[in-house]
Write a protein that binds this DNA or RNA. Sequence first.
DNA 1: CACAATTCAGTTGTGCACAACTAGCTAGTA
DNA 2: TACTAGCTAGTTGTGCACAACTGAATTGTG
Lengths: 162, 162
Amino acid sequence: MTPRTADDAAPATEDLLRLEHQVCFALHSASRAFGGVYREALRDLDLTYPQYLAMLTLWEHGELPVKRIGELLRLDSGTLSPLLKRLEAAGLVQRTRSPQDERSVLVRLTAAGTALRLPAQEVPLRIAATTGLDPAELRVLHGMLQRLTDRLDVTGSPANAK
Amino acid sequence: MTPRTADDAAPATEDLLRLEHQVCFALHSASRAFGGVYREALRDLDLTYPQYLAMLTLWEHGELPVKRIGELLRLDSGTLSPLLKRLEAAGLVQRTRSPQDERSVLVRLTAAGTALRLPAQEVPLRIAATTGLDPAELRVLHGMLQRLTDRLDVTGSPANAK
DNA sequence: CACAATTCAGTTGTGCACAACTAGCTAGTA
DNA sequence: TACTAGCTAGTTGTGCACAACTGAATTGTG
């Protein structure tokens, strides 16, 4: 390691390694920074960003089993169970065991949860207002991140050999 | 919502809003996916990714006050204090109050902490091996994320008016 | 000098993320 | 039928992130 030779190829490798670590750090930072912006925008709704994501999936799909929400958000029950219990405690959702399959718990919106959709539509407007990002660049970024994530959690968890 | 009018401008706005939220989610997912890859790569070193970041700053800069580490990693004392205490408990760093300014706590590497740098140099190699990402794309991604973060935490926390 | 404002690290409380595990249910099989 | 294997949600424990606060040390100002 630390090849101080007169060669040129080796330092290029070192730069690549530094770059990987910088990208991961940048990702980490950007994610937290975005979290801060959403925290602000969601304050009135009394939702955290992950709770908002769960509400979005329910607003879009209607009643869903916990399993499916987990697939859509890439979260496991260890994260979702308490999160959904908090949403239930806030009166936004209702959880009932499925009659067809008692293992499954169906989550559906209450009236209050459904009603929250209207004020929630202001959230992306606020985000757009405080960030003012370039749509074209966002599109590129989105594509890169999706490809990155796909590659990372395929290679990262080889237990998915089915 | 869902403007089914024959107009074109309104749907474009709606697409932008959807895009913002998708980018944020993609960021969130990518960050967690990268976290999983690092978790694997750091298992042998008994470090979490944030602990690894703290060690990187110390390997690079030597002795640092907690304040400076927080600036470099964009973390506050509420996160850093327990993290550094865990690194101290693991015997990797030593914390001492600065004689010049008793408010400040200086963090420096122990022999074990310094020695860990050698095996840690394998970490980026492993990351590179499991991800196999395109350097050019990484460079673009890095630039976009940095600009994004800069814009987000300027606008997100206006308390930095100095 | 005195005293008010600021700085720095730490603590507390809440919530997310994830690993490891438990408990109940379902389905497939001997 | 009984038994096993796998699925689903939930629980426990650890660690990060952040807001709000505390307490000690320092700095600035009258």
